[in-house]
């Protein structure tokens, strides 16, 4: 039962992720992105990571892709230009992508026989927070500096041009 659900949702995620790249029209791509992130969240749920799954929906599907869609709509990029690629490029791309997939599949199916199997535990919020404040405290705190720099950087990129020079802020 669990395997069936896993298979279904993995397929769903992969197909919608492919849809992001293959859709005609950027808004469809964004929509497929939401669906694939949603699928990922459900996969997390299947492995017992309920907190991460909800956070995934909240942040990725609920905020980040919204901003994607904003930009797409503001720039009004609906119709992609249909530049037909030369057929030789198509063949080369197809061969290399399929070849890569084949290699990866062979490698994966052979290599992981000896892997330690890990039982998925139910990752409760309490457990996550305990880890976050003991073992992973350092990256957690360091991220604040990163976010600070990010905010400054975003401000730099997005601040309005000033017409008149030298007005004090």
């Amino acid at each position: 039962m669990k395997e069936a659900a896993f298979a279904f949702f993995s397929l769903f995620t992969l197909l919608t992720a492919a849809g992001v790249v293959l859709s005609r029209g950027v808004v469809y791509s964004a929509f497929n992105l939401v669906l694939s992130l949603f699928g990922l969240a459900i996969l997390y749920l299947l492995w017992g990571a309920s907190f991460i799954s909800m956070i995934q929906i909240l942040i990725y599907a609920g905020a980040i892709v919204v901003l994607f869609v904003f930009v797409v709509m503001l720039l009004n990029l609906e119709k992609p230009q249909d530049i037909a690629p030369p057929w030789i490029r198509g063949i080369l791309t197809g061969v290399s992508v399929w070849g890569l997939c084949f290699i990866l599949l062979r490698v994966f199916s052979r290599s992981f026989g000896e892997m330690p199997s890990v039982e998925p535990q139910k990752a409760s919020v309490r457990m996550i927070s305990q880890l976050l404040f003991s073992q992973y405290l350092w990256p957690f705190e360091i991220l604040t500096v990163f976010l600070l720099a990010l905010i400054v950087g975003i401000y730099m990129l997005a601040r309005p041009e000033r017409e008149t020079p030298h007005e004090s802020p």
Binding site: V34, S50, F51, M54, I55, I57, A61, G62, A63
Partner: peptide, 18 residues
């Protein structure tokens, strides 16, 4: 009753924007 009910509500609520 999920053990993350509150985040569930916030998360799904944020999908209403679409």
């Amino acid at each position: 009753d999920l053990d993350v009910s509150l985040i569930y509500i916030l998360a799904i609520g944020s999908l209403g924007v679409y």
